[in-house]
Design a protein around this nucleic acid. Structure first.
Lengths: 319, 319
DNA sequence: CCAGCGATTGTTATCGATATCAAGCCGTCC
DNA sequence: GGACGGCTTGATATCGATAACAATCGCTGG
């Protein structure tokens, strides 16, 4: 900027103002300086500006990554959220700093103007730790930990309830839930499911599975069969689990959906093409990401922002 | 830091050195300062440091996002790459700045020490534009545009060739290719496929599809049927297309794999559970991401880094 | 006894931007 | 004619860190 000042025969501050389209500089001067800057390929130093302005125009997104280097993070859902987040933040002129929790980039996170937490699911302790940083923060998941942050999540309780009603309407009386309720979101789904069924005098069986993979789903069903448990409906807390479960059920000679009804969660693209087409609960991730971003931006702007729950939709297909 | 200096009765620079574990300060002084810092919740200002050191310890990752706000970016593959990338960069003490190409955050990108481009597929012009920034850069995809950057991609040609051999060995003589070869990576798959078949006197039919969705795959097969084209093998350049194609083929009364062999690409988790289980070509994304990160770090460290092609694996399942 | 060296600490300048306050110039109005 | 105000520009300080060089102290060796 000092160079530009010399080149155009004005002072640094005038250059700064000209490049910032400040009304304080003469229009001609401004245009001249801007064209000189363009010509010489001038690049603003973001760090210097951020230092002076005491802000970074950056929001850190912290994603929980499975430590298993095997599968990496293949869950499509954080990505869909990321899509919405980064679209919204970018549009507002903010940058997205992507971090994994284990990362040693604590310093970088602290430099952010705000924080978004994704997939911290089972680890509420982590949420609390980040909350202590005192930054504007939005968390994806179930409302739970108290704190000054905002929580955005889809209506997991409602999703579970909807599935319960669906099963009941089909006349199913021996439903199974597959998933890991130590994730608060899953816990809510389970709760909505159980409570709704309980109101109708039905007590579903819970099958806890840590992994959210087709294999895990298949094993769950095989375990049920080995234990001689009778069942006529399965609510899997994720589509992959559901597909695995269906496969295992079919291999055990059961017909889906004649003998067993199955509903998944997430509405993955592959689900609709599955044979039979997978019934599932759809949540709008893109919107979720957008909302997370908006709330953080709101908090950064010292506005009030409230936690919100997004509606879900039961998509009934062939299972 | 000035405050800490006052509190501990030393100068700013000594504080700086103490916090940086410099051997220039007395061990006792260092420990004392560090504990005072911890006690008072001192936080380093990254911008100031970066400004002074003229580096950002940040790598920008630019992801191509589909403009269709509908589906957002649901493709799981950039996420898997991102996993490897961020793991590797974080371990090296670097931060990941996530950007979409359309973003107005040009300034922020320029502040990065290096660049990684993902999914720029069809848009080689974009690659060239970023290349001009003169930053250390690694691109995921097919080697193509000349420039000072490094390209990492999986062996798409080899993948296509492998599928061709597989079809030939099965006695298939009327193969179809479904996909959009304007993406260089797809182009390579098509080329490996076509060349290998040509060497055996077979000429496959190309069905260009822009969308990589099950619906698109289904439409492709319906179109073939409507045109009365006979075919006994399908190579879809993505698993979702493949699943859609299989579904459509089955609905048209063809048996998979008896009448038609189908091979997809990517080895999505849902593919293995598909009925029948999807044969596909697997590429190691996690490794790809790791490699992308390593190459950029190498370039940043002024080492030589060469483009590399990752091996792929044909996974033969039930289709 | 003093030059000289190692260990430790401090002074000052610097990275590249922007805010604050001051100042110059010109025209208008009383 | 001079005060005043608008428009435009500039000098200086500042954000929070680190580098380069200087200074102090105690100790050793000739």
């Amino acid at each position: 900027m000092a160079d530009l000042a010399r080149l155009s025969g004005v002072s640094k501050i005038t250059v700064s103002r000209a490049l910032g389209d400040s009304p304080l500089v003469n229009a001609q001067t401004r245009d001249r300086i801007q064209s000189i800057a363009r010509e010489h390929g001038y690049k603003l130093n973001v760090n210097a500006r951020n230092l002076r302005l005491r802000r970074s125009h950056t929001v850190a997104v912290i994603v929980e990554m499975k430590p298993t280097a095997q599968r990496g993070m293949f869950d499509p859902y954080p990505l869909a959220l990321l899509g919405g987040i980064s679209q919204e933040l970018t549009a507002a002129g903010y940058s997205v700093l992507l971090t994994t929790r284990q990362g040693a980039t604590v310093a970088a996170v602290q430099a952010a103007d705000g924080l978004i937490l994704l997939g911290q699911g089972a680890n509420q302790e982590a949420v609390r730790r980040f909350d202590r940083l005192g930054l504007p923060m939005a968390v994806w998941g179930a409302t739970s930990v108290a704190g000054s942050h905002v929580t955005i999540g889809s209506d997991n309780r409602g999703g579970g309830a909807r599935v319960a009603e669906h099963f009941f309407a089909l006349g199913r009386r021996q439903p199974i839930f597959i998933g890991n309720p130590s994730h608060p979101e899953i816990f809510d789904r389970l709760n909505g499911f159980v409570d709704t069924l309980a109101a109708r005098g039905i007590k579903p069986l819970l099958l806890k599975r840590d992994e959210f993979t087709p294999e895990s789903g298949a094993e769950a069903v095989q375990a049920l069969h080995a234990r001689g448990v009778a069942f006529d409906a399965i609510f899997a807390c994720n589509d992959l689990l559901a597909m695995g479960a269906i496969r295992a059920a079919v291999e055990l000679g059961k017909s889906v959906p004649r003998d067993v009804s199955v509903v998944g969660y997430d509405d993955m693209p592959a689900g609709a093409t599955f044979l039979p087409a997978l019934s599932t609960v759809r949540q709008d991730w893109q919107l979720g990401g957008t909302l997370l971003a908006r709330k953080v931006l709101g908090l950064i702007g010292h506005e009030d922002a409230e936690s919100e729950s997004l509606p879900v939709e039961l998509v009934i297909r062939g299972t």
